[in-house]
Design a protein around this nucleic acid. Structure first.
Length: 398
DNA sequence: CGAGATTCATGTGAAGTATACCTTTAGGCTTAA
DNA sequence: AAGCCTAAAGGTATACTTCACATGAATCTCGTA
């Protein structure tokens, strides 16, 4: 019985090579980023003579090819370094991943494990991680390029001590040198930094502008011809994808995701043509999945808080509500679920974190004599909210 | 009527606590010379 | 005497609590026109 399914599946696939649509895929030719790539390359090029390249900072909203461009240049560099016998090392870290790299300690731990050194996830003093890091780097003379993706998020959360320490690391290194490549979504990011860090970090800057619809279409076409078999893409599908993404400030990653998921949906339906309707379905599915992933990965107290927010959002039906309301609801949920109750102080912080995650929007307002508080609104659409609520209730048995 | 004081409900910062985990160290036991 | 194991001691990060002060506009108070 299953044989049939499997056979059908492999035979009728509309994909030729799905990998080319995945986020971490680096195509051989990167379109519409030639000048940026050249700039990055020329800035990092001194590393091939084992000279320290300037620290570099890249800006641009999500999906404008920052990460891709850097990775591309880096892989080329490594190749050159290998044939030339240089001792060049490049480490890429995404600072955004919750539970992996959202504190100074954890980012350092990540850094060390990239260098092949396992460190415990708690218990060690942070300086000792710096010490270990310096030790490893000093083992042999080398040039280290550190790519920190999404550092704006990290700095928002943990302050700039990490960057400060990293920029000052040079002095304790003997034969080796470190260059930093920071990647940020927010253009205003460096302005929030301590001036000392700012000057040393942003020796060079490159801004990535969003793709326009035509460029997006071009990119999609390029990838799609690699990814799909011939003739499976219906009329106007790529245009629609591009248009969608262009309206989302030119986010190419989103466009590619859209196309890939649409392909998967079409395939599962057993059809052999990718049609417009699949794009619509895909759009919903992507949003749903990403929100659900975030929600599921939250710790218990966060989930309880979120559930209280949802409950309040229903009661207030669109109008905003306040921290006090959420805490009250939260308290009753805690009793119901027999969970340990957390203080309002902490709930306030948690609400702030949900705001950062984009699940809700908040605004600190003063209600005059009614005091000062956060005005909270859910930022998820209705059908999704029900789904989320279901999961949460299930999970927490409330 | 209007300037200044008061007030409310919570934001926000700093310091403290509990827990889980890590390294170091000292003591005790075993082994081998 | 050397080697190995174990448990206690001393230390840290993290998530949370406690304490204390900061906010800022609506509202109140009271002197003045």
């Amino acid at each position: 019985m299953l044989d049939e399914i499997f056979d059908n599946f492999s035979k009728n696939s509309i994909f030729k090579n799905k990998r080319t649509l995945q986020a971490n895929y680096t195509p051989e030719v990167i379109r519409h980023r030639e000048s940026e790539i050249k700039q990055i390359a020329s800035i990092l090029a001194p590393s091939l003579r084992l000279e320290k390249p300037s620290n570099l900072f890249l800006y641009g909203v999500t999906g404008t090819g920052k990460t891709l461009s850097v990775k591309y240049v880096v892989s080329q560099l490594l190749e050159k370094a290998k044939t030339g016998g240089f001792n060049l090392r490049i480490i890429y870290i995404n600072c955004k991943l919750k539970k992996v790299a959202d504190t100074e300690y954890r980012i350092l731990a990540e850094l060390l494990s990239a260098l092949g050194k396992k460190v415990p996830e708690t218990g060690l003093p942070t300086d000792s991680l710096y010490k270990q890091f310096i030790e490893i780097v000093n083992e042999e003379d080398q040039l280290l390029i550190l790519v920190l993706d999404e550092i704006d998020q990290a700095v928002d959360k943990i302050g700039d001590s990490l960057l400060y320490n990293l920029t000052r690391l040079d002095s304790s290194l003997k034969g080796s040198q470190i260059s930093l490549v920071g990647i940020s979504n927010r253009l205003t990011f460096v302005d929030t930094l301590d001036p000392r860090i700012k000057s040393s970090l942003s020796e060079e800057q490159i801004v990535f502008h969003p793709y326009d619809a035509v460029q997006l279409k071009d990119i999609l076409t390029q990838r799609a011809t690699e990814a799909f078999k011939e003739g499976v893409i219906g009329d106007g599908v790529l245009d629609k994808c591009a248009a969608y993404a262009a309206s989302e400030h030119g986010d190419a990653r989103r466009a590619l995701d859209l196309l890939r998921v649409a392909g998967e949906i079409a395939e599962r339906e057993g059809g052999n043509v990718l049609e417009m309707k699949h794009i619509d379905q895909s759009e919903q599915k992507i949003e749903k999945d990403s929100v659900l992933d975030i929600v599921k990965s939250q710790p218990k107290q966060f989930q309880l808080t979120l559930l209280s927010i949802i409950e309040n959002a229903r009661n207030y039906n669109g109008t905003a509500f306040y921290t006090g309301d959420v805490f009250e609801k939260y308290s009753s949920f805690c009793q119901e679920a027999r969970a340990k109750q957390i203080t309002q102080r902490r709930i306030s912080d948690i609400i702030g974190e949900f705001d950062m995650l984009g699940l809700i929007t908040t605004k600190v307002i003063s209600r005059g004599r009614g005091g000062k508080t956060r005005e909270i609104r859910l930022a998820i659409n209705k059908s999704l909210v029900e789904k989320v609520e279901g999961i949460l209730r299930d999970n927490l048995s409330v």
